[in-house]
Amino acid sequence: MSPEAAARRPGQAPTLSPAEVQLVFRAVLEALARPGTPRQLPERPLAELPSALLPVLALSDLATPTCVLENGDRWARTVRTMTSAPMTGPADARLVAVLRQLADGEPVAFRTGSAAAPQDAALVCVRVPEIEAEPAGPGPVWRLEGPGVPGSRLLRVAGLPDGFVSWRDRLGSGFPTGIDLLFVTARGRLAGLPRTTRVGEEVI
């Protein structure tokens, strides 16, 4: 059980009001429009739902193939109950929440869309321990460039498997195919990495 879920009162079904859904969407929209500039998800639902599940809960519906990568199937059932979304494997999902640690080099194939239908690509929300924009401390860091980024911007995302950036670069067959990523901390800090963003790996 995730630490977020531990705070839930037992026996009560989690909820997301239309107003909260809108706030989640706006945070996701801003995060993807401005890669490297983290946003904050609304606080209240974090008490009863894993933060990385919120974008999926806010966006899926009964026609959206959705996938939750977790240990067990508890949150997948929650998504199914709350949104009626058809649950699929990661390769078929339009929306994906990754609630467990991705293993090093874990090859997960996601939908990357096509030049004719870029909208078929997956939006993947990954739970991470920490996100730091323009970090000051030494360590590995991403240099982001592309739409939404004035010049370049530094972002540090902890807890991803080795080779994550090159794995992402290899997905699809070049723009406009690819996947759009969201990184979410337990406390609801959210950073977006749309397929347009070029990521350079550096150490500062």
């Binding site: 969407f25 996701v28 929209l29 993807l32 429009a33 806010a58 966006l59 959206t64 339009r94 870029p118 909208q119 690509a121 939006l123 939404g148 723009f175 406009p176 759009d180 749309p194 397929r195 347009t196």
Partner: peptide
């Protein structure tokens, strides 16, 4: 909203 997000990403 899903379409809007894709629009921003492409």
């Amino acid at each position: 909203r899903r379409a809007t997000l894709t629009a921003v990403c492409v």
